[in-house]
Structures are given as structure tokens and as C-alpha cells.
Design a protein around this nucleic acid. Sequence first.
DNA 1: CGCATCGTTGAATGGCCTCAAGATGCGTGG
DNA 2: CCACGCATCTTGAGGCCATTCAACGATGCG
Lengths: 249, 249
Amino acid sequence: MTRIATLSETRSNCHDCRLRSLCLPDNLSKEDIGELDSIVQRRKPVARGAYLFQAGQRFNSIFAVRTGSVKASTLLANGDEHISGFHLPGDVIGLDAIVSRDHPSTAIALESTSVCEIPYAELESLGDRLPTLQHQLVRIMSRELLAEQSTGHLLTRRAAEQRLAVVLLKFSERFANRGLSALRFRLPMSRLDLGNYLGLVPETMSRTFRRLEEQGLLSIAGKEIEIVDVCAIKALAYGNNEGDLAAKA
Amino acid sequence: MTRIATLSETRSNCHDCRLRSLCLPDNLSKEDIGELDSIVQRRKPVARGAYLFQAGQRFNSIFAVRTGSVKASTLLANGDEHISGFHLPGDVIGLDAIVSRDHPSTAIALESTSVCEIPYAELESLGDRLPTLQHQLVRIMSRELLAEQSTGHLLTRRAAEQRLAVVLLKFSERFANRGLSALRFRLPMSRLDLGNYLGLVPETMSRTFRRLEEQGLLSIAGKEIEIVDVCAIKALAYGNNEGDLAAKA
DNA sequence: CGCATCGTTGAATGGCCTCAAGATGCGTGG
DNA sequence: CCACGCATCTTGAGGCCATTCAACGATGCG
């Protein structure tokens, strides 16, 4: 809200952004980045719990997370919230709305979060002139599709411990891609939200975290997670899962 | 394998394709469709059980399903197969490979299946000249992303009956989009594959199908499915799920 | 017609959900 | 700085449902 903070936010640009390589400017020339930069809108941070956009709302822009984190959720017919994913800095949000006129899901900041807003009509026009930018948009969508597939269904089957192991490894990888530690990180969401995402109730989340800590695989302090035994976690997530279902001989 | 069948296949083109509106040619001018058509390769059908491509294989082309059906699967570290999705005529396959050099998953024909192969390098070049084609590619990827999100996690939570109800409604919708009946259709995959996709063992699949039939919601004859009570199925899938977990007051 | 894959049916085990209650943490206001 | 209130998190006991194990029936293909 202060003038100075707003200024320091707006002063930033794509070229100096340390998340550039994850985002739309990747592979672009210096001049092209300047053109992209001119259509990017940087606003003041979104407060914890505030909406970036709501489901059903008209789609106008995609958003790139600069700092903070965001959860994507939909409201089920019975009133339950269903969380479809979490977004970290460098992620691009709203790509699932391009095909329709409206946002299919709601985006809520998990903490104070600053985003770059990119009006889609202008991005599309710019892409018509800058093939490299267009290709990068397609690459980012392909990346999202890949991530969605690999997580979406690794969570369908498998026991609670395995689901948790998978999602922790996914976050570990994502933090590592952003230059942060792969073994010590802070999960930005509550246990309730993470459980919602995994299809587990909070009680099971609590018990499962405790079990993994007792087995010496994790060290937990609130939202701070330390992966103590990476090999064991990986084996649990992807490896020989004797407790798995549909085991083929 | 016969000469005539091959000829009748190769004779087809994008402009006459009845799946045009679901696929890349949608929104394109007649001339642009001709340009797209010139880079599309139509080969003889892929036999049941044969690979379109395998995980790890170099990515060169995307594929559009013309007739038949395809399952996408990955091999887990323990040797289990994990099915990440099913593709019907009009679907575009391989979009998740654009970001990397290699295919992340394997595509296997569930029946005799004919596809259009579209070399991606040529599509990209063509897209640089034809903005409408480029936009359509982005729209298709957005559509896939949306579908992946909505199915991927509706299956995470929920009981067996609800998972089955959700997936049957998804197929119903997809068949309807292709001009087929929304209430009577033939599932192209085995119960084992469908169970794998849903994270349920074959025994549970069998029992769940039978239970829905006994309740008068379905009529089943092998792979042929008839949805008898659509409302009840929808209520089960999305509605008031008292047996659901994480119910919020 | 024989074999292999797929599908079905029946018990028993185990894991996750439900319900209930207490503990912890954190932001707010006194 | 402390007290309060609320949301989040934890812990315990019990029940339900999907998996497991085992065996049989159906189907389809050579």
C-alpha cells in the first residue's frame, strides 16, 4: 500500500527477473523481451486469502507468479472445495481458460503474492509477430500438461504415505528448479489444503507426516520440511511398493 | 494391408474430415486447411496393441486420432503400467512431449486405429505463417489442460462408485461431442485398463459396475454401456456425496 | 478345440474415513 | 506484554470399504 513498495514492484521488468528462464521471456532476444515487457502489468501484491480471479469470471489475462504462492480450486456441486494445484513463482496461471471465455477455476493467494498480469489478447497479437514468444507459450503449456499428467494420476492410486512422498518430491524438484534447496523447504499451504489436493483428510495427513518422521525419512517443523532420507522417499514414491494395488507379477 | 483400404485412407483430407472442428483445422480458411493438409501424413491403421510411440522415444510428430482409440501409459519403476489417459477420434496426442525432446509416455492402440501424423517442426513453421493455426494449437492445448485437471483430480478423492460415475460421464460427454450417443456407447478399453486409470483393481471394477447396474443406473453388456438414469449418475458423480471425505459444514 | 486373457464371485484382512475431543499456533485487541 | 478467540493441527477409538487372496466362468483367438 505504501508508495515506495509499489514503486519498487513496478520498477521490476522481465529482463532483470530471476525467474525469466521459467517464464515467457525464455529464449527471447533482448528486444523481444522489451516488447513483452511493455504489455506486462505489475500490480501491488495480492493479500493472503485474496482472489487473483474466480471461477466463472471472464478470462482476460494470464498471470505469472513472481513471489508468494497460489492455490487453484473449484467448487463442487455439494459445496466442497476441490484444490487442483499449487503455483509457485515462475508458474503461469490461467492457461486452462484460453479455450473457453471463462476461468474454470479460482486462484487464491496462499500468502502475500505478487504476480505479473499479461492481457491475453495482447499476448496473442504479439505472438503473431514474435514466433519465439509463441513457441515459448506452447512450451510452457506443454510443460504444464506434462506436470498435470505426472502428478494427477500418481495420486490416484497408492496409499497415503506414497501420495505424500510423491507430492513432497514434486515440490522438492520445483523448489530446486527455482534455485532453492531441494531438501529443506517450506510448504506454503496448510495441511488441510494439501490433504484436499491429495484426497486425504487432515487426520490422515497428520498421522502420515508423523509416521514418515518416525521412520526417519522426514524432519518436520510446522510448514518447514526437511527431507532426511531422499532415497527412501523415492523408493516409497516410485519404487518397489509392496503395499501397492494392482501389482502385476 | 489391402491396397484399396490404404488408398481409401490416404484419400481423406482435413477439409472433408468430420472431426475437423475438434482438431487443428478448426477456424482455418479453406486455403489454410490446404496448407496444413500438405504436411499431414496419413498411414495405414495401427493394429490393436501396437505402439504409436514409446516413452523415451525421440519426439518428432504429434498425432491426431482419426478412428479407433489409444491409451497413454507410463511404466513405473516397479514394472507396473500406469495408464494416464484414453484418446478418442479427434484427440491430439503427443502435446506433452513438445517441451522435452522425448515422449514422456507410451501410446498404444486399443483397437485398429488410424491416425494423422503431423511433423512438429513443420507445424511450427507453418504456425509462424498462419496465426489462426497457431492459435488453434494453443486452444487445443488449453482444452487438454482443462480436461486433465478436471479428471485428474476428480478421481483422487471419492469412492469407487463415484469415480466410475465421473469417468462414464466424461466419456459420455466426449462421445456426444463427436456426434455419437451420450447414453449408449462402447468403452474401447478393458476393465483392467479402466481400473488402472481409476486406481481400482479389476475385482472392484466388476463389483462396482454390477452395483450400479443393480441400482438401475446402468445397463451393461460387456464393453457396451447404457446410461439408464443420467440424473442419478450425475448426482453420484458431482452431487451430494454423503459418503465423501473432507466434507465441510 | 485348447489356451490365454479377461472377467466374475466369495471371504478375510487392512487402511482410511468418521466422529469426538484436546492441543497448538497465530493474529487481534486490550 | 498478555489474554483472548479462532483456525489449524493432533490424538484416539470404531466402522466401512477397497484390496488381497483364491478359485471359477466367460470370452476370444489361434
